[in-house]
Design a protein around this nucleic acid. Structure first.
Lengths: 233, 233
DNA sequence: TGTTCAAACCTGTTCATACCTGTACTTTTA
DNA sequence: TAAAAGTACAGGTATGAACAGGTTTGAACA
């Protein structure tokens, strides 16, 4: 990415916006003149960026109307350094919240954290077709009393990230580990409607705020056939 | 430095700017004409200085845009992508070069690359204790005739990275994928002295130069018990 | 109620300009 | 006589501006 032309660099950040799910399929992009302001470049440069995205099939642009996202969101999670990408795009996934509670961390081998109570969010993603789980995500956020409402009302817009942001928890950095979980446990296999003993992809992430305090610890167990990790640098 | 030519002295000054951290990785250098004014020399001289820096891998220069720092003063290894972390530290590892040759890519499912001939480097890392392989790394670099000597003399200092840098192949960006290899193949199992069918951690990396050309494609197959991927962000 | 029409905003296209590097060459200088 | 300076031109890149045409909206009007 070093030394790339402005259009390439801008196309790159717009692509990240799209792949991260910030912009969903069908959403309109900002107008060219708005992008001119956002990136402080000329409209010609913006147009070249859009042409790059268009040639990649990420957007289409309609005369007199604007540009629209035509990418159906293969990337599941891009909040941090790497992105979790679906290996095949033609699959409809649904999400179910398994747990939304206040409690202990309940994850073995988790890093030791200062807090002893957490906002516990467990989520399962599964194939709409046959109900087989493809990802199991356990998120733990050190408890704050401002979370009380969430337990009743549920996650705002379903997004934990949005919730944390609204509470002023801004991610400044963190660590991520990826590895192979040699064998799916019985309990998790039941939750995911899979066979126990299967090898799975395990992803762990610890995010911290600017002051170094822990914002969130997440463990994701992913179907290795469906998911891979991808990073562009 | 006394007695050195102007281009050398100027290159030296600029190198100090880069290594001191005054200029960071990715930053643009001043334009050639600006450097002409700064050092009160001709543009020819400046260009020679930049050529020196470029040959050292400190910068890359793009037509119509400028020169950019490609040197990261902080880390020895490329700061690109995930770092492969040993899970347990008490184990002595040895390395054996399985192949050092010129040939086709020979990796299934590899991304399509322009070149059809590659510098092939296969390396095995194994436990000194019992000889069990813990990582199998297949590196492929699009063939250049300047590689000829390497086939006889072996890798300089054992480092492929060093070789590439000495040939002016500077990494400016790339992609990395990680996933689970569900079952170790028979052939690889033999090479690694492991059981076939074991799940392994698979890491693939494609690095590119500033002009977008492919520098190296690497596939690593890692013992998931020994290795994890770690990233700090 | 239905039509017309102007305004606002969007993209499509082109072009002049400025500044950047790439290259080749001659002239000056130490 | 080699190093450095100077000159000239070609080609790549980004800017800013202008103008054309598509789309939507809403006010004015029949």
């Amino acid at each position: 990415m070093i030394g790339a032309s402005k259009p390439v660099r801008i196309a790159h950040t717009l692509e990240a916006d799209i792949r991260s799910g910030m912009l969903n399929r069908g959403d309109p992009l900002a107008s060219e003149s708005a992008l001119v302001k956002r990136f402080s470049v000329s409209r010609n440069t913006i147009r070249k960026s859009l042409e790059i995205l268009s040639s990649k099939g990420l957007i289409t642009t309609k005369s007199g109307i604007g540009s629209f996202v035509t990418f159906d969101g293969k990337t599941i999670d891009d909040r941090s350094g790497w992105s979790v990408a679906l290996a095949s795009g033609d699959i409809r996934l649904e999400t179910r919240v398994l747990a939304l509670a206040r409690g202990p961390i309940g994850i073995s081998d988790a890093p030791t954290l200062d807090s002893s109570e957490f906002l516990v969010v467990d989520r399962l993603r599964f194939r709409a077709e046959d109900g087989e789980g493809v990802s199991l995500e356990r998120s733990r956020v050190p408890w704050q009393d401002t979370f009380v409402g969430v337990l009743d009302e549920g996650l705002e817009a379903g997004s934990l990230t949005e919730l944390l942001r609204s509470k002023g928890l801004i991610v400044a950095g963190g660590d991520e580990w990826a590895g192979v979980l040699p064998a799916l446990s019985d309990a998790d296999a039941r939750l995911m409607q899979r066979r126990a003993g299967e090898p799975m992809l395990r992803l762990r992430r610890l995010t911290r705020g600017a002051d170094g305090s822990v914002i969130e610890f997440v463990e994701s167990i992913l179907d290795p056939v469906m998911f891979g990790l991808h990073m562009e640098f």
